[in-house]
Amino acid sequence: MDIEQQTLGRALVLSVCENRIDAAVALEFRDAIRARIDAGQHDLVLDLSRVEFVDSSGLGSIVGTLKYLGQRGTLALAGLTQPVQRLFQLTRMERVFQIYPTAADAAEDLQKG
């Protein structure tokens, strides 16, 4: 699972450099993000602008990450492509996450606290 990371203000931006987050990679994806949380990174922006496809397993791993982080911090989502945005709408998960057009927008909002 190829994930690039970059610090923007107080946010750690994690850019998923994969076309898909599906059942084949969902666990690996979840563990990769958890490792950052365990390392003390609690203000996260997940940049999904390169992800063209997420299935229910991928969605489950994103929700699982939000639950794992819990009260410790924030997990914002950014750059959702059309099919991914649609998945969040169909499952009504768009009501749960803070979703931003770009990672920079998300980081800026996090900065304001």
């Binding site: 969605l59 489950g60 791993s61 929700v63 169909l90 499952t91 009504r92 749960v96």
Partner: peptide, 26 residues
């Protein structure tokens, strides 16, 4: 059928059960 959940109760969010509702609604 669709999993019902409270969007404000993060700790109780479903992590699975989305598959069939997604198929049925599309």
């Amino acid at each position: 059928s669709e999993v019902d959940f409270d969007p404000t109760d993060i700790s109780a969010l479903p992590e699975g059960g989305f598959g069939w509702p997604l198929i049925n609604c599309q």
